[in-house]
Design a protein around this nucleic acid. Structure first.
Lengths: 222, 222
DNA sequence: TCTGCCATGTAAGCCGTTACATGATTTT
DNA sequence: AAAATCATGTAACGGCTTACATGGCAGA
């Protein structure tokens, strides 16, 4: 039973529907195109989630079918085979609420990609906190593994070693990537004189088009 | 409730205990040092798993405490505060069985790292199939996202674009990494004349110490 | 003494998945 | 007419996490 509450799916759905109304099937394709490198959702979770969001009043079935159709030239056979969903005002509110939370639920492995994908709708300050949060998360991981590795007496076999090397390098790459993104963000929306006194509302997106690379990994402690 | 069956934890535990007997607490530390970049396990899943393995007869409590102690100079207070586990013959059998399975359960994101970590105990042929399996998995993912991207009319915002770029590059890197590993494996244990006729048993490890890099990602289809 | 790490567990529940079931529509 | 893909769902279960509960032992 996958309701809509709590998981990343809710955000993914609301975020997608905010851009344009969609029906379930295409929604999933969009999501898996958008996030395909990081995760994928199945219909078995998507449809129950949509139902939940519907009963919560965050989305509604779209009245007429004249939406999301730039491809199919014929279509519109009178019968409603597709159920197109659209965000309600409450849904937009909820989306904004989700996009404003800058906590572990935004920068953990499973969720970071989804949050990042909708950064366009996220306030500059929140973006920065999420990027920094993810960075420290990864740095903790690096520290943990590095010190554990240093404490290790017995030398490891070559496969273990190679795995370690590969993992470390990947996480280091992602940290570098985050560093550049953070720098770009800071350049675009400077910290304001008097750190943390006057807070601006929303600011323009800093166009992060100059990155190198890096990549996600996974958790560490209990 | 996390039993021992089916998940990667079972393999991780059996694999670790195969190297040396350990008690739960240290086992977890070992695992999170070994796999820290990819995933982490909590006590809430580890202990139930150990209990399950115990009742299944795959592990037993170690008789005397003279094990896994190269650090603590004092120790051994008579009372058993630590419960040290050791593999049984059945456990070793089960471990070998798990290490022999070259299927999706070996090359998916959650499990690949764990399987790779114990490649030392895996037959050369199986290693190769797992590496190739993972590679095609990643290539499917690349194809899927690339074609979906090509079909997309509307141009995406810079964050989405950057996420896509980063994801693609990361997966491409892992593919290159796999390519080198596979090449190394092939060099070390050549395909035998007459493909698939005479099969050798176990062969020596090919020492994969000359890789570049790459990195994991996540699923795609229903 | 008291903070913190070692050490072992349990209960509840989250967030999804797989597998199944069904039917319309489009393509071959 | 068959095969593929679109489209929508449900039931059952899986594997792990979080939060809780408990206690011994070490060093500040």
């Amino acid at each position: 039973m996958a309701g809509g509450r709590g998981g990343v799916l809710e955000l993914a759905v609301l975020g997608s529907l905010h851009e344009t109304p969609l029906h379930g099937y295409e929604l999933r394709k969009r999501l898996n195109a958008l996030l395909g490198m990081f995760r994928a959702f199945s219909y078995g979770s998507l449809y129950p989630c949509l139902r939940q969001l519907l009963t919560d009043g965050l989305i509604i079935e779209d009245g007429d079918a004249a939406a999301a159709n730039a491809d199919s030239p014929i279509a519109l056979p009178g019968r409603r085979s597709k159920i197109v969903y659209r965000l309600t005002a409450e849904g937009k509110e909820r989306l904004h609420e989700l996009l404003t939370q800058a906590g572990p639920s935004a920068w953990e492995d499973e969720s970071f990609g989804v949050h990042f994908a909708f950064f366009r709708h996220t306030e500059a300050e929140v973006r920065l906190r999420i990027l920094e949060g993810r960075r420290s998360r990864l740095e903790e991981r690096l520290d943990g593994v590095r010190t554990a590795l240093a404490r290790t007496r017995e030398r490891l076999d070559s496969y273990t070693l190679e795995l370690q090397r590969h993992g470390l390098e990947s996480v280091e790459r992602e940290v570098r990537w985050l560093n550049e993104l953070i720098a770009t963000e800071r350049r675009a929306s400077p910290p304001d004189e008097e750190r943390r006194s006057a807070q601006e509302g929303t600011s323009r997106a800093p166009e992060p088009g100059a990155g190198t690379t890096g990549r996600p990994a996974t958790p560490e402690d209990n």
